[in-house]
Design a protein around this nucleic acid. Structure first.
Length: 281
DNA sequence: GGGCAGGTGTAAT
DNA sequence: ATTACACCTGCC
């Protein structure tokens, strides 16, 4: 049943969907169910790649392939891995992390999701996003809800936001939604803009710091040289490249640019996955 | 039940 | 320029 998605050989679905870049996937045994826009998608790992379950047509398959980062071919994770294997440290790490893909997620949903992610943990982030979708998003049937659009979120009552356990992030989410809803922040334009200009625009939003901004750039706006530094990536860089020496954030960024260049985003994903799985704090 | 994790904003030096 | 602390919630 379903269809094997082209170009997904070698893609590790679990590593990809559980890598902290997406928050709307649920595993039911071997099947991952997620919401892409207004469509529920079910995926499973197959011997030759990723299988799209259900009776969806070619257009859906193409959309899922773009989402999974295997289209266009220049964005394919295999290219990044080939290049990153030149790095001695990553060559050692890759056997544990190979197959991770950088997802091409919806800019708006990614923007809000990572504002919620600040000073937070993944299960709680997922609950908050689920709660917002349930309260404000369109029903897609079977108890599944789309992520609410900017206008819906901008107009939401504070108590609705609070009911989704946003905590002190609620005003950040509301302000961010208003900026997008009335066009003062154009996420699509930031996807086309230069990295530094886009970064600056995101950092001007209350609740968006360097880490969240870089996550939005990398996971939602297609800026594949962004290098989000959270505590795990910091540990990985300091321990694996600098013998545990304490570095400043700017120095980590400069190091990533120099060392990984156009593949910095992918390097970050592998370092993050490795650190979370195998490094001690 | 107190301590802790997780980024950002703000106020302090 | 760097540093210390508060912020909300859920988990241990």
């Amino acid at each position: 049943m379903g269809v094997l998605l082209a170009d997904t050989a070698g893609l590790d679905l679990k590593r990809t969907l559980d890598s902290g870049q997406a928050f709307r996937w649920r595993w039911d045994g071997p099947v991952a169910a997620g919401v892409l826009g207004r469509r529920v998608v079910r995926l499973t790992q197959a011997p030759g790649g990723v299988r799209l379950l259900g009776a969806d047509g070619d257009r859906v398959a193409a959309a899922v392939r773009r989402y999974l980062g295997v289209l266009p071919s220049r964005a394919h994770p295999r290219r990044a891995e080939t290049a990153l294997r030149e790095d001695r440290v990553l060559a050692r790490i890759l056997p544990h992390t190979s197959g991770i893909s950088l997802l091409a997620q919806d800019p708006w949903e990614t923007f809000i999701s990572f504002i919620i992610s600040q000073n937070n943990n993944i299960p709680k982030i997922m609950r908050s996003i689920e709660g917002l979708s349930r309260a404000l998003g369109a029903s897609l049937g079977d108890g599944v809800y789309a992520f609410p659009g900017p206008e819906r979120l901008a107009a939401a009552r504070m108590r609705t936001l609070a009911a989704s356990s946003l905590g002190y992030r609620a005003p950040y989410v509301r302000t961010a939604a208003r900026l997008v809803a009335d066009g003062r922040l154009d996420l699509a334009a930031l996807a086309r803009a230069e990295l530094e200009a886009a970064r600056e625009a995101l950092l001007a939003v209350p609740g968006v710091g360097e880490k969240v901004g870089d996550c939005v750039l990398l996971f939602g706006l297609g800026h594949r040289t962004a290098f989000p530094v959270d505590v795990w990536v910091r540990r990985a860089v300091e321990q694996l490249y600098f013998r545990g020496r304490r570095l400043r954030l700017d120095d980590i960024q400069a190091f990533a640019r120099a060392r990984f260049g156009p593949h910095a985003g992918y390097a970050q994903q592998h370092l993050f996955a490795y650190a979370r799985g195998r490094l001690r704090p």
